[in-house]
């Protein structure tokens, strides 16, 4: 997936003329630093501050979502590519399944707190 597409057999057309640009070094470094910062913030909040439990949870979730976007933009090249928008379709399906997993787990498990 990097510079040389892992020897993908390409129907004998030989050369990879339509080589897509896979981002610059600058973008990767920015993405890397942002990821580290976004990971350190929750750690600091948990270990170094006296924020309330809800505040901590909200901070962690927010940082996680921003981190997800950073990964998509800087490493997964979500803005690139032409043709059918496979990546957008896949993301929507992925998002849908994540929502199903989280929401229904809360729903399924909430009965536990009702009976206790």
């Amino acid at each position: 997936m990097s510079q040389h597409p892992a020897g993908a057999a390409d129907h004998g057309h030989g050369h990879h003329d339509e080589h897509e640009n896979h981002g610059s070094l600058k973008a990767y470094v920015i993405g890397f630093i942002l990821s580290i910062v976004l990971t350190v913030i929750p750690l600091l909040v948990v270990f170094q501050t006296n924020m309330s439990k809800n505040g901590i949870i909200i901070t962690i979730v927010t940082m996680a979502v921003i981190q997800l976007l950073v990964q998509l933009l800087f490493f997964m090249h979500i803005r690139e590519g032409e043709g059918p928008k496979y990546n957008v379709m896949t993301l929507i399906l992925g998002l849908f399944i994540v929502v199903v997993i989280v929401a229904s787990s809360v729903w399924i498990m909430s009965f536990n707190s009702v009976v206790q």
Binding site: A6, G7, A8, A9, H11, G12
Partner: peptide, 10 residues
């Protein structure tokens, strides 16, 4: 009709 999978090494 392909000559291998997309990522043979993987």
């Amino acid at each position: 009709g392909a000559r291998d999978v997309a990522y043979p090494f993987l």
